[in-house]
């Protein structure tokens, strides 16, 4: 579906992508990882037809640089940094829907599922929204249209747990018939979402591996945590995960999205000394 052949990109004398050969097919959910300057964003921009390069990049046999409209109407893109657009949210949705020959109501439906009320923010300038709201809106625009390739740069970084959960469910709905590229600095952020890991370093692919695909993206984990004693710092942190305590702050219960399990365990590990017991039971939805 997506083919990179001997892709090389240079900025003046600096080689940012060095002879990349990759093939990404339908059903591939790729974690594109690497440190800053590894070449992830440049690779994505080449795929979006935004950069000139040596070698070739094709989507379904077509070059995104030569046939932009034909290729880009299949691609939903969520950038890492939201653009500072002054246009109101409603105008942005209509603009994107019109270019993509999509129904704005469909995009608004996804935005609503992400926890934003499109009617309420319709007249607000995009640039005035909070980081999380911008991210939800861009996800809504990318997923609320007929796209079979999703390219997302740190898509869940600014999302609250509830929105992350909805986001994972939306990805689960698309996973069978689309290809996904999720770029991140850290594998643990996206590990449970993907079935393939591509690591880049200094413009080269240093790891390309298929990984166990046992986590159901759409699953939930019912969690119960018991502490030895109440701890205010823990209360605040676990509250951010949407947990609640019916007792004196020693017993907490909540739901963690399946793909977030690694992040959650990472969070819990900081409070190991406080833990009396913990249980996580998966329940497929």
């Amino acid at each position: 579906m997506i083919q990179f052949e001997q892709l090389t990109k240079r900025f003046k004398r600096h080689t940012v992508l060095d002879n990349i050969d990759l093939n990404i097919g339908v059903g591939d959910r790729v974690a594109l990882i690497g440190s800053n300057g590894a070449g992830k964003t440049t690779l994505i921009r080449c795929l979006l037809g935004e950069y000139t390069f040596d070698g070739s990049v094709t989507v379904g046999g077509i070059s995104p640089r030569d046939a932009r409209r034909e290729v880009l109407k299949h691609i939903g893109f969520v950038p890492q940094l939201p653009p500072p657009l002054r246009m109101p949210v409603g105008q942005l949705i209509n603009f994107a829907a019109s270019l993509c020959d999509s129904d704005p109501a469909q995009m608004e439906g996804v935005i609503e599922r992400m926890g934003l009320d499109p009617a309420r923010i319709r007249k607000q300038p995009f640039v005035k929204l909070s980081g999380g709201q911008k991210q939800k809106l861009l996800i809504g625009i990318a997923l609320g249209r007929e796209s079979d390739i999703l390219i997302m740069d740190e898509p869940a970084a600014n999302l609250d747990p509830e929105a992350r959960h909805v986001f994972f469910s939306l990805l689960a709905e698309k996973q069978e018939h689309s290809a996904m590229i999720i770029s991140s600095h850290r594998l643990d952020e996206v590990a449970a979402l993907v079935n393939r890991v591509i690591e880049m370093d200094q413009g080269k692919v240093v790891l390309d591996d298929h990984v166990a695909d046992d986590v159901d993206i759409d699953s939930n984990l019912h969690c119960r945590i018991e502490l030895k004693r109440p701890e205010p710092a823990f209360n605040k942190a676990v509250g951010d995960w949407g947990f609640s305590s019916a007792s004196d702050g020693t017993v907490w219960q909540g739901i963690v999205a399946g793909p977030d399990r690694l992040r959650f365990i990472g969070f819990i590990s900081r409070y190991t000394a406080l833990l009396k017991s913990i249980s996580m039971d998966e329940e497929s939805r």
Partner: peptide, 8 residues
């Protein structure tokens, strides 16, 4: 980067 990722 964003607006030119749309099909135009």
């Amino acid at each position: 980067e964003y607006l030119l990722s749309l099909p135009i």
